[in-house]
Amino acid sequence: MSSLEEIRATRLKKLQLLRDKGMNPYPVSTRTSATLAEAAENFKKLAKKKELILSGRIMALRGQGGLVFADFFDGTGKFQALIKKDKLSDDLFKLWNDTVDIGDFVEARGALFLTKREEKTLLVKEWRMLTKTLRSLPEKWHGITDTEERFRKRYLDLLMNEEVRARFILRSRIVSTLRRLLDAEEFLEVETSILQELAGGANAEPFITRHKKPFWSNLI
């Protein structure tokens, strides 16, 4: 297995290749027509259009040769894209195979269709890089297994674990609903310090205080 340094070095070469071929690997905007959830929900309607533009993060790549399937994820849902050699220019197809990795953000233009297995899919006619990532994502099936790493790298845990992501979305909606309810009743929100046994948080210097009966313990 390649080390993180080797993976980064390889991706830096791919980044330079994109620039050499005239493709900006970090454009400031995207022309996306719909979210991936909207593309799935309104598939029949959108499939009547000659083309549309979808974008998202590449979460999986399958296939080889002249046929590649890619799973896109944009935070609202997932959607499958098909990259066929005979539907792209030779240069764009080769550039895809030479530069695109799992974790990259990609914009794809094409038409919607159903595969033989009736999977909703975007047949890609043109693509461009939105963000070339320089670090790899955790392994798909196991994700982040170390508890401390999960807590320290919540952004990765939320990306790789659908159950955790759903829980955080639900929590956010509950807090938002409660805040709106209390705001409507003219309650005042005040932030207060939290006592804990271990120092954590920002860069402020911690201090020790003592909890009296019944715990008799030092807190920070």
Results as ranks from 00 to 15, higher is better:
98 D>R: 07
9 A>W: 10
99 T>C: 14
6 E>I: 12
61 L>T: 11
207 F>I: 01
71 D>S: 13
106 V>N: 00
209 T>H: 02
59 M>R: 15
40 A>H: 13
7 I>D: 05
4 L>W: 12
133 T>C: 02
130 L>F: 07
151 F>G: 04
189 E>F: 11
59 M>A: 04
133 T>Y: 03
71 D>Q: 14
108 A>W: 01
171 R>E: 10
10 T>V: 07
122 L>S: 00
50 K>M: 04
105 F>V: 04
138 P>Y: 08
19 R>N: 07
30 T>G: 09
160 M>E: 02
99 T>D: 13
158 L>D: 02
121 T>E: 10
160 M>S: 08
81 A>T: 14
13 K>N: 12
146 D>V: 06
197 E>A: 12
128 R>I: 04
72 F>T: 03
78 K>S: 13
95 L>E: 02
168 F>Q: 04
28 V>E: 08
2 S>P: 12
215 F>E: 07
1 M>R: 01
23 M>P: 03
94 K>D: 14
208 I>R: 13
149 E>S: 07
1 M>C: 05
115 T>G: 00
30 T>E: 13
173 R>H: 10
88 L>S: 05
177 T>L: 15
49 K>A: 09
192 T>R: 04
106 V>A: 10
78 K>R: 15
170 L>R: 15
64 Q>C: 07
55 S>T: 07
213 K>L: 13
55 S>N: 05
122 L>R: 03
142 H>E: 13
171 R>Q: 09
101 D>S: 06
143 G>A: 11
18 L>S: 08
70 A>R: 01
68 V>T: 13
176 S>K: 15
108 A>G: 01
191 E>S: 08
35 T>W: 02
117 R>F: 09
178 L>C: 10
